[in-house]
Nucleic acid binder design. Structure first.
Length: 898
DNA sequence: ACTCTGCGCAGAGGA
């Protein structure tokens, strides 16, 4: 039996005499649902007890019970594990680096692993290893894997043939050992096993399993008899997770692939690549206690000093970095500090943002917890999984991967979308067989691709920490390596400067022309505030062209190389979403500009922009040249934080949708350039974050409030009729948003070809109308309202509008699904959040709520602004008047619409 | 009480 609950009393460790001699114990009280329980933690588990704070979650497995003075008490048994904050999933590689030195764990976390040759080669060797296990021919595999890494190798100044030769050396050791196994008996192999433990709060991916035992591949050399301790620990972690699945893993194997016969002569020692060791309870418990140290430190958002372990700094290859970071941020560390501390405000900024990002990471971890704790029955009402799949074919495709198919047996709504990375399983993602997979198709039939085959019965959302990781590295790069002038401006120590060189770029829109001038004259930064429909994308394209075409004032070539072929400036074009990046590219192309490289995944980039997409594979020198020669590189801000992009430098960075980005996410793009331009609208939706804190204030908003003179608002809109834009202009833009022309102001449905507005019911004749269907809410839906919305949509279709000219917006996904079942194909039905950025001739908004507006979704008025400004010629609001009138803004909206 | 996009998922290593 297990005890699990919130710690209410952490207890003190004390020594007692027992029949086995003196032993340590700590008595901890936790609150379970049915009241407090006292658990005695014995022996080495007191080390974990010492980490506890009130409020932490504690799990003690396999406890023994006792009756003492009529009360039941609990204590650890031989089989017990003590798990601190079990909901916090710790990566196996983090446990490994913590064992080396807790400070190294921290440094890796804030700075990421930079681009260096040993790491890139290590990755290639691992890929080749996987290919060999999947039965692939060695030379084919090496050639392809080296080719794929073309850009990275090029940036490191490596030639493909040299790398292939080196990899071949490592592969020889692998092959030799594999053949050995096959000779002795039938080996049972599999590669790349993903393991996630609910019980221990550990996740990771084992390189391979051989007869159910973990095998870890290392590219380096180890001539000692025993594997390195941290390498062992990695294998022990996987063994622990395998045991939880009922696989009795008791032996670990480390494969040091640089141990080859070639080394004979220059060294003596154990040259066999494979080193086995046995895994006992002592090691398994050690891993859990180490994991607890990490979980406890992250709970407090503490920074490790290095004293937590007995690592020696003297021989550490990270010693210099460690001392510099300690010195700059004034952190206590075992290695000591060198250099001057950063100004107080920079240190405080780093600490504050670090905490916020970690809080955000914590929220992601809670999503994991939900993922594992729910039974399949509970999952049925959950939108984070598709559990109703009937397995179909499993076909091997190129590269040894698998295409898995299944059919859906219900029409349950889910968060999962095409292109997502998910956990594909046989129905039990924890105890059963699960693989990481990518969703290729998500209709009646579900198609995913994965490294190994699975009986596809279930898909789960796999929460990613990538955005938290990227935010941290961007924060690190900015505070510790950022440009001094840029920091002066962003820390309010200096005001942004502009040169005064006025030109006419756009002759029919004063604000747009002003925006281009402001951007090209900015010596630090410029802000462009673009309300709905104001020609933001066109202006962005014009700015980019103007920047690239203006000659470089000062010599600041990228990457220490020469200027670009044209001699102009280089620009980074970035945005929060792939969609916005591609829209900006489309506008650039419309203006005849093609000197662009699009960096992004095949999934993310729109089909008509694939021809601009940068291919990372190929000849190393050619890949580097293509990236460096482009005047404009376009990528999402998330990609700007990638290892490749962190190596690039530009004269200027332009970031669209900047009001939807957290401050650290914006920094990822700004770090890559000398100057920047942010484009956004803080009256539309704020950054997407899971936590409620200062992360939801964008850098765009902070700067436009601090430096209003560094910004210009585009005030002429080309989208909405006068009648439609009036409310948004008054409520959100101080009445300053106006139609660009009389034609825009006076546009009507009747002007569309084949549309006969006389066919419309009376109450829909006006450009803006309000309909109260007298519905009733059922959960997050309102079926009667959905019926009425469908009728309204049909009226417009009957009047001659085509389905793609009509859009329906609802606040909740459940209502979106409800309406989706009722309207004709081709009519876009979506949430407000997902409609941001697009528009339709006719928009119907379903508000769902009846009685009151008691849901957080209605609190943010910016959502109303987005919903109402999607329509060009006709806007229909469908909702319960009484509910809407409980709030002053919604009430004014009803008055305006009626 | 709700909404949400990114990211090859995680890991690849050096004395």
């Amino acid at each position: 039996m297990n005890v699990r609950g919130e710690v209410v009393d952490a207890g003190e460790t004390r020594a007692v005499s027992t029949q086995y001699g003196e032993r340590n114990l700590a008595e901890v009280t936790v609150r379970e649902d049915d009241g407090p329980k006292q658990v005695t933690l014995w022996g080495k588990w007191t080390e974990s007890a010492a980490l506890l704070e009130e409020g932490m979650e504690l799990l003690v497995t396999d406890v023994e019970t006792d009756q003492y003075q009529g009360e039941t008490t609990y204590s650890t048994s031989k089989e017990s594990s003590v798990v601190v904050e079990p909901g916090f999933l710790v990566d196996v590689t983090d446990i490994r680096s913590w064992v080396q030195c807790p400070r190294m764990y921290y440094l890796n976390k804030i700075s990421g692993i930079p681009l260096n040759y040993p790491v890139v080669k290590g990755t290639i060797v691992h890929e080749v290893f996987g290919d060999l296990l999947r039965g692939r021919e060695l030379d084919d595999s090496i050639e392809e894997r080296v080719e794929e890494a073309g850009l990275q190798l090029g940036l490191l100044g490596m030639e493909a043939s040299d790398v292939a030769d080196e990899v071949r050396q490592n592969a020889k050791a692998i092959e030799g050992w594999l053949q050995q196994g096959v000779l002795t008996e039938e080996d049972d192999w599999r590669s790349e096993q993903l393991l996630v433990s609910q019980q221990y709060g550990i996740k990771g991916r084992a390189d391979a399993l051989r007869r159910g035992m973990p095998v870890e591949l290392k590219t380096g050399k180890n001539l000692k008899r025993d594997p390195r301790f941290q390498d062992k620990i990695q294998a022990v972690c996987y063994a622990l997770l395998l045991r939880e699945k009922g696989v009795p893993a008791d032996t670990g194997t480390l494969l040091y692939t640089k141990n080859t016969a070639l080394d004979r002569g220059d060294e003596s020692g154990d040259l066999s690549p494979a080193k086995e060791f046995s895994i006992g309870d002592g090691l398994l418990d050690f891993v859990v206690r180490t994991r607890n140290e990490i979980a406890a430190m992250e709970y407090e958002t503490d920074v490790p000093t290095g004293y937590e372990a007995d690592a020696t700094c003297e021989y550490c290859f990270e010693q210099d970095t460690c001392m510099v970071v300690s010195g700059r941020l004034d952190q206590e560390s075992k290695a000591g500090q060198i250099g001057n501390a950063l100004p107080e405000e920079e240190q405080r900024y780093f600490e504050k943002m670090y905490r916020l990002v970690e809080e955000e990471r914590g929220a992601t971890h809670e999503e994991y917890a939900k993922l594992w704790e729910q039974t399949p029955e509970e999952r049925a009402d959950d939108d984070r999984a598709l559990i109703d799949l009937k397995p179909g074919s499993q076909v091997e495709i190129e590269g040894g991967r698998w295409e898995l198919r299944a059919t859906r047996t219900s029409d349950a709504v889910s968060k999962i979308r095409e292109g997502d990375v998910v956990l594909a399983s046989d129905g039990d993602p924890i105890g059963g067989h699960a693989e990481m997979a990518r969703v290729k198709q998500l209709g009646e039939e579900v198609v995913v691709t994965a490294d190994e085959s699975v009986e596809l019965r279930r898909l789960d959302v796999y929460p990613s920490e990538l955005s938290a990781d990227r935010m941290l590295t961007a924060l690190h790069d900015f505070v510790l390596k950022g440009d001094p002038r840029q920091k002066d401006v962003l820390f309010d120590r200096a005001s942004p400067d502009f040169s005064a060189n006025h030109q006419t770029y756009i002759d029919n829109n004063e604000a747009q022309n002003e925006a281009v001038n402001l951007a090209t004259n900015a010596e630090d930064f410029a802000l462009v505030h673009g309300p709905p429909g104001t020609g933001k994308t066109y202006t962005i394209a014009r700015i980019i062209r103007a920047m690239v075409e203006q000659s470089e004032a000062t010599e600041s070539p990228r990457n220490g190389g020469g200027a670009t072929a044209e001699g102009g400036e280089t620009a980074l074009l970035s945005a929060f979403t792939n969609r916005a990046v591609d829209n900006a590219l489309e506008a650039l192309r419309d203006q005849g500009f093609e000197d662009v490289v699009r960096v992004g995944t095949e999934n993310g980039v729109r089909p008509d922009m694939q021809d601009l997409r940068f291919e990372q594979g190929g000849d190393p020198n050619e890949r580097v040249k293509e990236l460096r020669d482009a005047s404009v590189v376009a990528a999402t801000t998330a990609t700007c934080g990638s290892r490749i992009m962190r190596e690039q430098h530009f004269d200027v960075a332009l970031v669209d949708e900047a009001s939807q980005l957290t401050e650290p996410a914006t920094l990822a793009a700004l770090n890559l350039a000398d100057r920047f331009v942010l484009v956004g609208d803080h009256q539309q939706l704020p950054p997407v974050v899971r936590t409620e804190n200062d992360l939801s204030t964008s850098l765009f908003q902070r700067l436009i409030e601090t430096y209003p003179d560094s910004g210009v608002m585009l005030d002429r809109q080309y989208r909405m009729s006068q009648r439609i834009q009036a409310f948004a202009s008054r409520e959100f833009y101080d009445g300053e948003l106006r139609p660009a022309t009389g034609d825009v102001a006076g546009q009507r449905l009747a002007a569309l070809p084949d549309v006969d507005t006389s066919a419309l019911p009376n109450d829909l004749q006006n450009g803006v109308s309000f309909v109260d269907p007298d519905g009733e809410t059922v959960g997050n839906t309102n079926p009667i309202e959905a019926d009425r919305v469908a009728e309204v949509v049909q009226s417009f279709l009957d009047a001659g509008l085509s389905p793609d000219e009509v859009g329906v917006i609802a606040p909740f996904r459940a209502q979106v699904a409800e309406i989706g079942r009722r309207v004709s194909a081709g009519v876009t039905v979506d949430t407000v959040d997902r409609f941001q950025g697009s528009s339709k001739e006719v928009i119907v908004v379903s508000f769902v709520a009846t009685g009151n507006l008691e849901s957080p979704i209605f609190e943010d008025y910016r959502r109303v602004n987005v919903a109402l400004t999607r329509a060009k010629k006709s806007l229909v609001l469908v909702g319960d008047e009484a509910a809407l009138c409980t709030d002053p803004l919604y009430s004014r909206m009803v008055d305006w619409a009626k």
